[in-house]
Amino acid sequence: MAKVETQGLEKYFGEVKAVDGVDIASREGEFLVLLGPSGCGKTTLLRMIAGLEKPSAGDILIGGEAVTHLPPRARGVAMVFQSYALYPHMTIYKNIAFPLKAVSMPKDDIDRKVRWAASMFGIERLLRRKPRELSGGERQRVALARALVREPNVFLLDEPLSNLDAKLRTSAREELHRFQKDVEITTIYVTHDQIEAMGMGDRIAVMNQGKVHQLGSPKEVYSDPSDTFVAGFLGSPPMNLIKTEDRIIGFRPECFLPRELLGGSGDLESFTVEVSRVEDLGSDRLVYGRLEKRFGHHQVVANLPTSFTHYSIETGGTYDFAVPRKDVKFFDVESGLRAEPIPL
């Protein structure tokens, strides 16, 4: 267990700034997710922590010790690659034993630890096989067992679930999360999938264009976004962002409901919506439409849960919608950062 910290970390690839002054610090035993769109620098950041990329500037500390100039093998980290990177010419047993052989561990101890790691992931029966004979899910477990076997201080996981099919991904997500809580090893997990991030992370660092936009719990980054990027990146569909003269106002589609469904509950902001399309997704109903003129006929989307199926909405109709005042977020027009609320 160890804290991972980056201080002013930068990485240039030629003229391109892939990582732009990142300062983050994990907590001990934490599951920290780096989330962002492709090319946002999250994998580069992870690779710098692993020692596979040399930072252009800044420092990396693991367990309070500067490791910026140490080779990957001296950092006490284990990494699971997106491709799993299983050694194709070795059996699963030898794959898992490989990191232990590197430290010249006695043969008996290697055997004991390989079997322990394999039992953690229920892959004892695969030990004699070669990686090519394994399914995607089995390969992923082998990669995790290989990472676990030398009991590292930090786990680095680079989109380890992205090669699995949707059904398997759900169970693997749960398994991975439980495993991390059991071993309590600090984990940094890179993904572009917000469901993975929200479901597994203790905290999420939302990244874009090499910068960390917000670091916070899943609830914080979702409900209390620090800027318009985070607001627009998280959620499906994402937060409605409406540009006015003084502020950008944002509200989540699921907080944006027909006024009469919200009843007289508290302080509400009302909008008139001309509905252009209704999508019934089974579990939810998405209502697309335009706001009234004072909001520049801005496109918005509302997400009505199934419990409101009785409420009929027709394409082409005009309806009164509202958002509880506490759920409306205000952002600065220039910087996109959170700003003081103003009356609408």
Binding site: G51, L52, A78, M79, F81, A85, Y87, P88, F98, P99
Partner: peptide, 11 residues
């Protein structure tokens, strides 16, 4: 990835 994995694994 294979060489990088080996480098992280201690080589």
């Amino acid at each position: 990835d294979l060489e990088e994995a080996a480098m992280i694994d201690g080589y």
